[in-house]
Design a protein around this nucleic acid. Sequence first.
RNA 1: GCCCUGGUAGUAUAGUCAGGCCCAGUAUGCUCGGCUGUCACCCGAGCGAUCCCGGGUUCGAAUCCCGGCCAGGGCGCCA
Length: 445
Amino acid sequence: MFDRTYIEDAKASVGQTITLAGWVSRTRDLKKIRFIVLRDKTGDIQVVVKPDNEQLFNLDLGREDVITVTGRAVESNVAKAGVEFQADSIEVINKSAQPLPVDIMENKKSDLDTRLNYRFLDFRAPTTNAIFRIQNALLTAFRNYLSGNGYMEFQPPCIIGSASEGGADLFSIPYFEKMAFLAQSPQLYKQMCAISFEKVFTITPIWRAEKFNTPTHLNEVRQMDIEQVFSDDETVMGVLENTLVHMLKEAKEKTAEQLKLLGRELDIPELPFRRITYTESIQMLQDEGESILWGDDFTKTQEKLLTELVGKEAFFLKDWPGAQKAFYAMPYNKENEVDAKYLEETYGDVEMGDKVVRAFDCLYSGIEISSGTMRIHMPELLRERIRYKGLNPDNFEYYTGAFAYGAPPHAGWSIGLERITMTVTGMSNIRECCMFPRDRDRLVP
RNA sequence: GCCCUGGUAGUAUAGUCAGGCCCAGUAUGCUCGGCUGUCACCCGAGCGAUCCCGGGUUCGAAUCCCGGCCAGGGCGCCA
């Protein structure tokens, strides 16, 4: 339909007659010359119109009008960009209503709420555009890295029949004559896939019906998950740090321009990331005078303080109290020689194995961007842990049953897409990092 | 769910504490006109606001009080 050339290619093919297609960013009309800044996904270029072409010179053009311009790129020592485009003809494909409801030129950036109401236009604002290009680079890097390392992508269901894990509130939806729920996690499904396909990953939305009202929470987020067999927590922590570093490197390389626009200097964390046990971190906080006891979760303030103590770098917090993590987190086995040795070396106390589980969080720039565990693959132990959590194992038959027919030891983690985008782009509100955020009040657009 | 702050042209803001000088100022946008190859062009004129909604106090409310809705931030909740 359109034989068009992208602007960045036009700049490289000076002299040839070609057609550009895009949006009018702005016009600068003088008496004897007119300039039109044309924009497409590859950048922008100044289109020049001389008065001898009367039809073009008087053509009515407004911001965000969609046009095609036929002409040729020429080198220019007057144009700041060095290259401009001499127009022979312009076709207006679609006019834009005026004035625009948000300031996409960012002279005076509109409020987030206003921009979200007109997200389709806000995407054209350079900084918003940059955020999602960076997010896309992270996503692509995640997918490519794992695909390239033998992981199979799978798709979990989003509608589930029962609350899979307890804890967070689920959204319930009518499902014919039954009640169903929006999945809060692909947890069970990735485990079921891993115990057959060995190494799997997924990028999937999840829903939490919590009435949270904070700059770091949404009711609908996207998770990047992996699960793999014959692995423990340390195995997948290794995968996580390598995946994360790859993602950051790719973002740094592929979206250097966008990061620069946002004023971001991306420091790639060094491998391997530091490992700190939960027990150590409690000690560190207590040494700073924080009133926190072993077994407590960190408050926001304590999480920030801990980051200051450890440094901005990415690090792992591992060996969490069993009470703090899900029932499926694998406890240490003191009878096992390797585990006993680890516990002895780390805690000088093998009995710690009764208190902590093989679960970890990954903190990066002070935000918890990922968490994972080694899972329990023995149905009997699972039932025991469910009882330990004060739950009834009979209600989890569908879960424990999945591991009755030869489930290898396995482990996995998940990264929050919006959270990591926040960290990388330096945004302080997660809504900036979600194209169409769903929060306590927002359901549109 | 709690606490703090806010809601004024399309957008972003001033004015609110100390009610009347505000039928609401500024910037940008938009419309029109002018104009040295401009580049956030410039210059001039104009357009555009039931001052979030409802109630109250008062001679008089954008301004004070009450309720509601919404937004931003802090916290809580978030296996």
